[in-house]
């Protein structure tokens, strides 16, 4: 099916999808392996292999129990969440860029992540029930609110590519200020997670239950987005063009915007607001596999996972004895990419 699509659609991507999936999966495994091995306490590949054999296949191979604990409970769960989060954010970027026809659209720059942070923090401070699910629900409400805020501001001020980004800045600032205020004024939130977590993200403290939430969410979202891949293709020439190509524009938009809000909310409630993944990855993947969304979504999900897992490894290695917020690493890569896109869009006009 995919090979057929490729030959039918003239332009030749750098990589075929088959090749990309192979390389992508290999890169994903390599990134996760890095995630397990590197850190404060070095573990050997042998220990990793034994731990995985014990845990996954029911073997009883000799491993130091503390090291097995680090590998299984700390490192692997963390790598798994990083992969899910990166994939989620990359998918959000692809979807938002297509629907808003804006190359700079992604959850962080549009203030959706900031809104999700505010929502999550509010739930924690008001102690509206406990548990990851309620925090995620709060984050979803916040993300949806931020989405509505940015949309109203952007289209109320005349619409257009630049307006959306400006509205996103206003939204980010507003919701980040609200988050900082709530966290600072509340001892409860301060104890749970600090301001830095909600503004820049961190994979510290991530455990298996978090992966248990992130994995099904990203899998469902991926399947749904692939189902809507053709509709996203049809948005290339705008919403009227999409409608005349048979897309139920209102419905697809609502569903996909809700989906990005849900993905963002899930990610933010687990690892905080991490930026730029949704910007860097889709653009890099467009270059590698072309603009067709079937391929692009799959490739971006894979690459987003790899990128986030590696960013996490870097965040633990750059400063010896310290862990940087993972959002700092993604921003260090993402901000220059933002600049490049801005520069190129100037040339296009």
């Amino acid at each position: 099916m995919i090979a057929g699509t490729l030959s039918a659609r003239g332009s030749r991507p750098v990589l075929g999808l088959g090749g990309f999936l192979l390389i992508g999966t290999a890169a994903l495994l390599a990134a996760v392996t890095c995630g397990i091995m590197f850190g404060e306490i070095a573990v050997t590949p042998h220990e990793v292999a034994n731990t995985l054999a014990n845990r996954l296949l029911g073997f009883d191979l000799p491993v130091d129990p503390i090291r097995e604990g680090i590998i299984w409970h700390y490192r692997l769960s963390r790598a798994a969440v990083a992969v899910c989060a990166g994939a989620s954010l990359a998918i959000c970027g692809v979807v938002l860029q297509a629907l808003l026809r804006n190359p700079l659209a992604e959850p962080y720059l549009l203030g959706i992540s900031a809104g999700a942070s505010t929502g999550a923090v509010t739930v924690i401070v008001l102690s509206l029930g406990a548990g990851a699910l309620t925090v995620s629900a709060g984050a979803f409400a916040g993300a949806a609110l931020a989405f509505a805020f940015v949309a109203i501001l952007a289209f109320g001020s005349g619409g257009g590519t630049d307006r959306i980004i400006l509205a996103g800045i206003a939204g980010s600032q507003l919701f980040n200020a609200a988050t900082s205020f709530i966290v600072t004024s509340s001892a409860t939130a301060e104890q749970t997670r600090g301001i830095m977590f909600w503004l820049l993200g961190s994979l510290g403290g991530v455990r298996w239950p978090d992966a248990g939430l992130a994995f099904p969410v990203v899998l469902l979202a991926l399947a749904y987005c692939l189902y809507r891949a053709r509709a996203l293709d049809a948005f290339a020439f705008g919403e009227d063009a999409a409608a005349s190509l048979g897309v139920d524009v209102t419905r697809v938009r609502i569903e996909l915007f809700a989906l990005t809000a849900m993905l963002t909310a899930t990610v933010v409630s687990i690892i905080g607001a991490v930026g730029f993944v949704g910007l860097v990855i889709p653009h890099a993947m467009r270059f590698l596999v072309g603009p067709s969304h079937g391929r692009l979504i799959l490739a971006s999900a894979l690459a987003g996972g790899v990128f986030m897992a590696l960013a996490d490894v870097l965040s633990r290695l750059v400063l010896p004895g310290q862990v940087l917020p993972v959002g700092v690493i993604t921003a260090l890569f993402g901000a220059p990419v933002f600049g490049v896109i801005l520069w190129r869009s100037r040339g296009a006009k």
Partner: peptide, 23 residues
């Protein structure tokens, strides 16, 4: 018609098949 998506002419024409094809 304007787009910022880097499509080839054939890919643009192929968009016209979207309503004829099931997901």
């Amino acid at each position: 018609a304007t787009t910022e998506v880097a499509l080839s002419a054939r890919e643009v024409v192929a968009l016209g098949r979207a309503p004829q094809r099931a997901a």
